[in-house]
Nucleic acid binder design. Structure first.
Lengths: 190, 190
DNA sequence: ACCTGAACACCGTTCAAGT
DNA sequence: ACCTGAACACCGTTCAAGT
């Protein structure tokens, strides 16, 4: 049976995880799919478009459920905003680290794809729920995003396997808390 | 007269600024230097090594004079630590923006080259002078670096020319101040 | 010491033609 | 609708041989 777009994307994901971004060529991907390189252009207009779709798929893995009590939720523990921001930031980093060259790929799209917009929106919502107005929440979401991307990009580039993961986790957590403290001080008390 | 390593680096810098990182190929660089591609390998062992050198040269442009009153300096205004951090962060962003694909290139080296180490050291010194102990200063320098890199990378990627520069400058400044406020709260008062 | 010539093993992309 | 075959215009890198 013929290839569908989803098969191409799936193959690209597997090739990325196995061999990394530099080995993810149209020819190698085509070979893995049992097809010639030219065939890919029936499914995606360019390699760049395929990589954008791949980035968006990875970003999709960062998305969590909305904050707390939806309909039928226990009235229970409302997650406070720092915990919500920590959850989103932590998932973003973990997701990028889970894929070879994940940070490099995620940071390389040209126009923000749907899931990137959704992710950013979750961050904005968390800050609005804490009392920030729209411009402030946008600013805060942007600092968090920039920090997480910059941090993870460097971590992944320096093959940080030299430092054990739990230690890197702790450092990330400490630095993230600095950013959160800054948001509290400058955006939620001014 | 024959080419020297410095000529090759200079040519690479010019080609980067004119045409961007994707057009910076060994063949095009060689052509600009009046030489065949293979000749470059007498000066640099690989294209990656050349790009590392180029990144380090750009990072060198971020370095400023050490903080304040050296020998013979006016006893005058001692720069306080937030201003020093702001200066370093602002110069880093401005330098990356000044070169086409500057952020992408700076963020892509494998092992931190000399100027990157020096730059990071300046940031650490600024925080130590503010009373942070060594681990805290390191943490703080790292948050600033991650933030600046993540921010500038995205800014430059999204061809942010849509938004006027002075407005982007203002946003950067606001977000940087959030990071600085976090450092003050978590590293200089605990 | 520094470079050429020529090759090797690749790339992304296009497109007539096939089924 | 989906793919092949074959080409086009490139890559980075190596290395004998030239000067």
């Amino acid at each position: 049976m013929p290839l569908r777009q989803a098969d191409v994307l799936q193959g690209a994901m597997e090739l990325l995880d196995e061999d990394g971004l530099d080995e993810l060529t149209t020819r190698r991907l085509a070979q893995r799919l049992g097809v010639r390189a030219g065939a890919l252009y029936w499914h995606y207009p360019s390699k760049a478009a395929l990589l954008d779709a791949l980035a968006d798929r990875i970003i999709g893995e960062m998305l969590t459920q909305p904050p707390a009590g939806g309909p039928g939720a226990a009235p229970a523990v409302e997650q406070d905003w720092p915990d919500r921001v920590r959850e989103l930031a932590t998932r973003a980093r973990a997701t990028m680290l889970a894929h070879r060259d994940g940070a490099r790929l995620v940071v390389s799209f040209t126009a923000p794809p749907p899931n990137a917009v959704a992710y950013f929106g979750s961050l904005v919502d968390a800050l609005r729920s804490a009392g920030a107005d729209a411009p402030a929440a946008h600013l805060g979401a942007d600092v968090v995003t920039s920090f997480v991307n910059g941090y993870t990009l460097e971590e992944q580039a320096r093959q940080a396997a030299l430092i054990p993961l739990d230690q890197r986790d702790a450092t990330f957590r400490l630095e993230l808390d600095i950013v959160i403290a800054g948001i509290r001080a400058r955006l939620l008390r001014d």
